[in-house]
Structures are given as C-alpha cells and as structure tokens.
Write a protein that binds this DNA or RNA. Structure first.
Lengths: 131, 131
DNA sequence: CTAGAAGCTGACATTGACGTCAGAGGCAAG
DNA sequence: CTTGCCTCTGACGTCAATGTCAGCTTCTAG
C-alpha cells in the first residue's frame, strides 16, 4: 500500500502522512526505489493519531506516548503511564470546561428565546437581560 | 480602569485585550489622550470571550455572536440563534469526541497496567496487546 | 515506449491568537 | 523636572499542522 492509498483510507492528506512520519508518529518501509509502503495496520494508526490530535495533544506529546503503545517495556511504561494520566486529567478538565461553556450557551439561548417570545407578543417587559 | 488593570483582573495579557478590540469583541472609551478606559462589566466580557475561545470558536464566530448578546433586536436574534444552535451542535460533537478519546486512553491504560502487573509477576502471558 | 498519474525532497506560505520590540507619548510621585 | 511605569501604534516573530509549489524520479496504462 502506497502513501496515496493510506491517506485516502485514513481520510487525511498525503502531506499529513509524511508529516506524521517526520514527527516520528508513523514508520514506513521503503520500496527499493524509495517509495513509502504501508500495511493495513497503519490505517488505524493514522486514525488513532488523528484522534489524539483532536484531543488537543501535540505531536511531541503523541510521540512520547506512542513508544509505549508500540513496544511495551518496563522502562517506558512507567513514564508513559504517568504521561497518560496527565493527559487524561487535561482531557477531563477540557471536557468539563466545554460542558460548562455549552451550559452558558444554553442559558443564553433560553433568555434569547424568551425575549423573542415576549417581543412577538408585543410585550416589552422589564427583562433587561442580554438578547 | 485602564487596560493593564482590566487584563490583570480578567487574567489575560494586555496584548490580548487589544487584539479583542481589534477583532470587534470588545469596545473601549478613550481618554482625552487616547488611552483605553473600561468599566467593571468588561472584566466579565473578557472572561466570556475567553470561554468561547476555549470552546473552539474563532474570533469571527464570536464576533457574529456578540451583537445578539449586546443589543437584542429582532433582525439579529434569528441569525444569532441559528448560529448558537450550530455552535452548540459543534460543541456537543467535540465533547463526544473527547470523551471517546478519553475512553480509548482509559482502555490503553488498563491494558498497560495489566501488562505491568503481569511483568512484575514474571508472567509472560499471551496478551499480545499494545503495552 | 510514452504520457500522465503519483511519489520524493526541500522549501516557502498560511492561519490564528497571541508575544515581543521599537519609538513615542502620558501620568503620578518625589 | 525627572524618574519610572503605563499606554499607544505598527510591525514583525512564533508555533503547529498543513497547503502548495518546484524540480525530479518512478510507476502504470495504453
């Protein structure tokens, strides 16, 4: 499987695949003439990397995490486990923030809807709220 | 209240405050000599903007949303409401993604912990899993 | 064999939310 | 008046993940 196919299957650009390799997030076997070759497993690998990106991890952090996924050993598992715990905490914090923001948005929309209803009824009440 | 105080109270940099004004997310009154002056309300405003940023909204999107918050009127409330619904959906999707990623991380950590335990017991079982 | 699609490397461009610096002016305290 | 801190505008730097282009090579279909 060549780079174009991998990119298509994983739903990313060819450029991104090369970048992932450059960052040490992905390895490839080279054909005698220098073209990158991949197995089916790499498709999942790319998707996994994408998900970590989506979770806000930097390529450096991902690079620190992946060795544990790849070759579990005593030395790296401790450090990686700590790293994962850290990222898990960061992720949870981020999720909580987003939920809180969504709640804020919901309250804003509720007030807006109420205002809209009042206005539709021609009632100009004392609701001084925003929107 | 001058820009430095506002920035300190809201917990952002002076640069950011100027940037917000540049993007139309914040307004200021100018002193006779041209310095920006703010009221207490702007502190909350800046914090609100920050939360929207944290939620992944771009400054352009925030700029489209804020007029509704500021001056509720019939024309802008419809558009703003739609926009808010859109962003709410995006937010929910993002939250779901993050939770899914956290779950993946949890599974990874569980396997890692198991592996670690087995290794500690000197047992090299058939768990071919990652880490 | 040959045209065109796809790959390679290397480098510069882009986007967004700032950081940072320069040069000039404002403002309160001693 | 001076010292030192704050503010102003304007412009360039940064960082990270990609886009994009150039110039060249390799593979594939006819």
């Amino acid at each position: 499987m060549r780079i174009g196919d991998l990119a298509a299957r994983a739903g990313v650009s060819v450029r991104s695949v090369r970048y992932y390799e450059e960052q040490g997030l992905l390895t490839s076997v080279r054909s005698p003439r220098g073209q990158r070759l991949y197995g089916d497993a790499e498709v999942e690998r790319v998707r996994f990397v994408q998900r970590l990106y989506a979770a806000g991890l930097s390529s450096r952090t991902i690079a620190e995490l992946l060795p544990c996924v790849d070759s579990p050993s005593r030395e790296n598992s401790d450090a990686a486990m700590e790293r994962m715990l850290q990222e898990r905490a960061r992720l949870s914090q981020h999720i909580d923030d987003l939920i809180q923001t969504r709640d804020t948005l919901d309250r804003l929309m509720a007030v807006a809807a109420e205002h809209h209803a009042l206005q539709a009824a021609g009632t100009s009440s004392a609701t001084h709220s925003t929107c």
